[in-house]
Amino acid sequence: MQSSNFSLLNRDRVSGLIFLVVCFVYGYQTTQIQLFPGDEYEAFTARTLPYLLTAAGIVMSLLLIVMSPNSSCPSNSCEFDSSDEKHMNWKLLGAFIVLMTAYGFGLTWLGFVLATSLFLMVGFWLLGERRKAVLFGASFPFVILFWLLLTQALDIYLEPGYLFLSLLGS
């Protein structure tokens, strides 16, 4: 390792290795696909294309590992390089992924209106919005209008959350 730009295990090679593992797992799973009696005499089975893809995938990943130059971004042709990483806000992205996952659970438990309003409000707040008028004004009223549009105008049934169903006892 001479510098951050020179590395045998650069981003391309790591990507190639991961893709190689994915291909091996895909190839193994291909062997688990059910075959019917007599399929061995067929020209084309459910395993044919997956086998071809496994082989092509392995060749491509090996090519990437072998042909990759020692610097991930040899000709400044990459969309992102290591200098971009300094400006990346991983914490904020993590918070949003947690928020989106919570929103997924919220849709089941709290229902569309409450879950979406809370999702938007927390989302605005995470991005730095602190004005109460925006935090509350752009979440609850907007979601209620959207909910009315879906349920009343487009006649789409949206289940109330489990929480409300258990509270109301139905």
Binding site: S15, M60, M67, P74, S75
Partner: peptide, 20 residues
């Protein structure tokens, strides 16, 4: 793009894999 041909092939294969 430049230097992305191999990666584009890999992504095509991944897309085909997902389709199966």
């Amino acid at each position: 793009g430049k230097g992305q041909v191999l990666k584009a092939w890999m992504m095509t294969i991944l897309g085909l894999m997902l389709a199966t």
